[in-house]
Design a protein around this nucleic acid. Structure first.
Lengths: 251, 251
DNA sequence: GATTATGCTTTTGTGTACAAATAAAGCAAA
DNA sequence: TTTGCTTTATTTGTACACAAAAGCATAATC
């Protein structure tokens, strides 16, 4: 139980954490990523002390990160009983998707009006990264990048409250997909993403919204109710970040 | 600087704080109420230590409350520079109202489908309280209750993410109204609220949505850009909660 | 053998001390 | 008088220690 992170390295790519420099942003991003990539299964207990030890920070920092995750409904914070990875029910998933349809429609319309060519090119670059992740077989990163695409689109729409809501919805959606999506790796959302960007650049609101709604339908239709298992050992989950203490202190 | 609250009494009515029992819920509610009732002007610095002393709790609790307010964009949290009451710009106000129109439309449609008669009666009771507040001349409470009406309606719609987003939007709207609404006290929103409930009870979606959109228009049209002043002395703002130390230690 | 009571362990909640960063004040020089 | 710098003071950031609550296991009783 005395493993420590090196100075505390931030993960591949965040996009979510504000200035992504402070300790709690880093912890937040790591835990979030671990959840999305299913290294942390829904229901897993997130002990403050254990996480603090793993990341080499005090419980204060962990607590802030967990609080933030709880606010996005990715983590459930039970008073006096600690935090667990959220396990959205089918009904909760349905509600999230309802809200997402609403938000994505609004975002698409706004993006058609406001998105700059520069922003659209950045979006294209993100889609390429997303595609690469899936073709590498890195499903976790793919889901995450897909989410970041939708978040970036929200930013291009230029409405701050919508961005904030979208962030929360995307997080929850990612968790739901990670939990419920059927095994067929046909998550070729990047193709639909590209078409969407084209429609927005053409300033064709009708077409863009139509594509977005179909995209939502596709995501929706891929869900099923299989429960998959993942590790709930915090040390194992974050082992790739740990430097071995002596030689084999925990093997 | 040695004033203390009695055991820590919660404000009139919260509706916002979860179980509204824990210390930080109480602190949150008090500060939020003070902002809505314009006893705390936009831009006012919210010192952790001062607030801690006033409420008789440690900075830990204050910090959580501020963090929560910041997440609703009612308070601005600047790293290393403390918290201030948010002062939404005209553009930010515009964005909030755009989002609200979107959300209120969805909520109204869902409420027509799902709201029970019991919920509608509770809503009517809230509108009566709102009306009473305005007739008493208690503008702050009126604005707050008006916001709580919209939040309760969101709950009746039965979509959790929407409720959460609505909470944030309502908070911001209240702040905007408190800051920008013109002096004419023609804030007779309670009348429109009553008509809305009737339309929902009649399960007339078209009429309900139409009323809601007009309601939004009315709120919108009442805004102007006058800046009003309010106290920025924390002790004065919360004086009604303080018991006098000895006889006249601070007069 | 099942069930409830009780003490023990673990984990979270809160207050506080110390470190770091920022803002303020004072002073000097132009 | 004003401007810039140095020093001081205030305020936030983080860690830690102690208190309180929940969970767990053991044991006793029905």
């Amino acid at each position: 139980m005395n493993e420590q992170l090196q100075p505390l390295k931030k993960p591949v790519r965040t996009g979510k954490a504000g200035r992504s420099g402070t300790q709690d942003d880093i912890v937040y991003a790591h835990i979030f990523e671990a959840i999305l990539e299913q290294r942390l299964a829904p229901g897993t207990k997130l002990s403050e002390e254990a996480l603090g030890e793993i990341f080499g920070v005090s419980r204060t920092i962990i607590r802030r990160a967990l609080s933030r995750l709880a606010h996005e409904s990715v983590v459930l914070l039970r008073p006096n009983r600690g935090a667990v990875v959220a396990s959205p029910t089918v009904e909760e998933a349905r509600q999230v998707f309802f809200s997402r349809r609403m938000v994505e429609r609004a975002i698409t319309e706004l993006a058609v009006q406001h998105a700059t060519v520069e922003q659209l090119n950045e979006l294209r670059q993100m889609v390429r990264e997303e595609r690469d992740s899936f073709s590498r077989g890195d499903r976790g990163a793919g889901i995450r990048l897909s989410g970041e695409f939708h978040l970036k689109l929200a930013e291009a729409a230029g409405n701050a409250p919508l961005v904030s809501f979208q962030r929360s919805l995307v997080s929850q959606t990612s968790l739901i997909i990670a939990q419920y999506e059927s095994g067929n790796r046909s998550h070729c959302s990047y193709d639909e993403h590209m078409q969407l960007i084209d429609a927005i650049e053409a300033r064709d609101a009708g077409q863009a919204v139509s594509l977005m709604m179909h995209h939502m339908d596709h995501i929706d239709s891929k869900l099923n109710l299989d429960e998959e298992s993942a590790s709930d050992d915090l040390h194992a989950v974050f082992s790739h970040l740990l430097k071995k203490p002596k030689a084999s202190a925990k093997g």
